[in-house]
């Protein structure tokens, strides 16, 4: 009986342990500084929007094509 109780306890502890490990990991992580963060956002943002605009230009070409074939 005592043994099975032990097992149940272990089972209940697993997620707690898991969350503990996770938060400990996040706390140990090196976080980007404000300056880094702004730089990253700028780089990713410019790339993202630039590619998006090229892509959208192609989508615009579709509008007359749709008129022609539908």
């Amino acid at each position: 009986m005592a043994k099975s109780n032990n097992q149940i306890e272990k089972l209940a502890e697993a997620p707690v342990e898991f969350v503990k490990d996770g938060t400990a990991f996040i706390q140990k992580c090196k976080k980007p500084s404000n300056r880094d963060f702004l730089q990253i956002v700028r780089a990713v943002g410019i790339g993202f929007v630039a590619v998006g605009i090229i892509g959208y230009a192609i989508k615009l070409v579709h509008i007359p094509i749709r008129y022609l074939i539908v």
Binding site: F48, V49, V51, G52, I53, G55, Y56, I58, K59, L60, I63
Partner: peptide, 15 residues
């Protein structure tokens, strides 16, 4: 690329 296109279309799309 498709997601970024959709994002641009959702914000700046003129259709």
């Amino acid at each position: 690329v498709t997601i970024s296109t959709n994002f641009v279309a959702d914000v700046f799309g003129v259709g």
